[in-house]
Design a protein around this nucleic acid. Sequence first.
DNA 1: CTGAAAGCGCTTACAG
DNA 2: CTGAAAGCGCTTACAG
Lengths: 326, 326
Amino acid sequence: LSDVAQLAQVSPITASRALRGERGVASDLVQRVQRAAEQLGYVPDPAARALASSRSNVVAVLIPLLTNQVFVDLLEAVYRRLQPAGYQTLIGVTHYDSLEEEQLLASYMAQRPAGFLITGFEQTPGSRLLLERSNVPCVHLMEIGQASDVHCVGLSQIEAARAMTMHLLERQRKRVAFVAAQMDARVLQRAQGYRRCLQDAGLYDARLEFFSAQRSSVAMGAQMFESLMQQHPDVDAVFCCNDDLAQGCLLAASRMGLKVPKQVAVAGFNNLAGSDQMLPSLTTVNTRRFEVGELAANMLLRLMRGESVSNRHVDVGFELMLRGST
Amino acid sequence: LSDVAQLAQVSPITASRALRGERGVASDLVQRVQRAAEQLGYVPDPAARALASSRSNVVAVLIPLLTNQVFVDLLEAVYRRLQPAGYQTLIGVTHYDSLEEEQLLASYMAQRPAGFLITGFEQTPGSRLLLERSNVPCVHLMEIGQASDVHCVGLSQIEAARAMTMHLLERQRKRVAFVAAQMDARVLQRAQGYRRCLQDAGLYDARLEFFSAQRSSVAMGAQMFESLMQQHPDVDAVFCCNDDLAQGCLLAASRMGLKVPKQVAVAGFNNLAGSDQMLPSLTTVNTRRFEVGELAANMLLRLMRGESVSNRHVDVGFELMLRGST
DNA sequence: CTGAAAGCGCTTACAG
DNA sequence: CTGAAAGCGCTTACAG
């Protein structure tokens, strides 16, 4: 930096200011400094910058799992927006564990990150305290509708699930099962939407809710479908909390010789890759992860610049993808 | 840190050394310092540490794409190993572009990362120079068999593809097509393995190689399968460079009323999620990404500690998963 | 709008 | 085995 300043014939302080685009520097000086920096191939040291300003250019992104396409899509969208803006993306995987999340949060906080992007609202009190005290901006992903002071971009998981259940009822289905694995907060919200809709229609039967604490997968969906259809052959629709489960249902139905949607309808959630290619193609809910990631990154960018955000709760909505399986 | 030193009644330098586990500190002092640090809840500042030592605790992981499960598996395995060892995982996405990779490398280098993990060997001369000059340890992922001074963990993509092609020939297939998208270096190596095997058998026909520069996907596989079977109805086996393409082939075959494997065999590569659940289940090559990620992280950990690595080229091999589709 | 001073919180040589 | 000095490369108040 001092070399740059020397070449531009200004003090290092001015050079620093010019390079950071701080306002209040004569424009000719800015130009001189920038040219000098380019000539010398000057690259600022992030460590020194972080130490002096107690703020880094790192954004920590906390997601539950890397092996779930939903979160990878978020990560991808966030990275795409943050990278060109000069921020680096640090990943943190919580494994759906709030305590693990708190530890990650604490360890990242030591790094004075410029911002946090956190999936969901399942923080421990300790995590909340860490976030509040630190004053590091934070945007939550995938859900909406919490306390008014938090920032979030997402959708109502309850409403999305309710809409899909409603669609199944409109297709004249009376015995609608719910299949879920990896029971995180969002899955439980979807279960709620399903339940409320069926209760309103007077068709709710608690025996038709199937939960597994194991990880969601195609194989798990196939397995759950087989056992549920054996126990309840009268089921005429299966609503899965995730597309991989629903894909498994479709494959299992085919193996069992059950006609979809004639004998049993199958619906998924999240619109994952390949769902449109299934036989029959899978009806599902598109959750616009890329939009969530991008808008959340935009919001965080504003917050990190100290700008205000007019709308702290952004609802990206959802989209029913009505296809062959219902 | 100085508070800790004061409480432990030693100098800050000694405290620093004790906390970092540097050898040459009396063990009673180490204990005193550690207790003091715990008592005060001391957390070292990574920025200050990085500035003073010109080395951070950040490992940059360069992968081509986040939307490809193969690389996410690598990332997951690497993260799982690095996190508990005190290193943070920074992601960099190259989009299969060596120039973009070089820019990322340059920008990460300014951060003085503790190490690099880079997918493949497609570096530009500029990237190579950056790596050599920096002295930052680096381990390459997924491929093997380059210059002896580089470190890598992977498998021979050529041999893996050759083995699968051989399997198809053993199943009496004579007209074996190759279907590929997203033509990166590893896909081309697989093509080579396929080609050599067929040439050796005297069955090679260049018209049966189908390439698309677009992204690999289930839909793309289905589309390519349909058009290739129309053009060449005599094809009796299709070897896809990736499982998503192969899954698409299976679905397309089913739509077209073609019996798999009776009329046409289908084989994939990478053993992705859901392949075992297809109808029929997909024969494929398991590429052990988790093992690659874990072993590479271990190797990098050794290098970052300044330890020597006895075997710089680790071949994790591959595994033919012979299932219903061939 | 520009600059001189001080300091961010550590660690690396250099002594002893 | 321990410590006093110096400095890593920036930026934040404070003056002018």
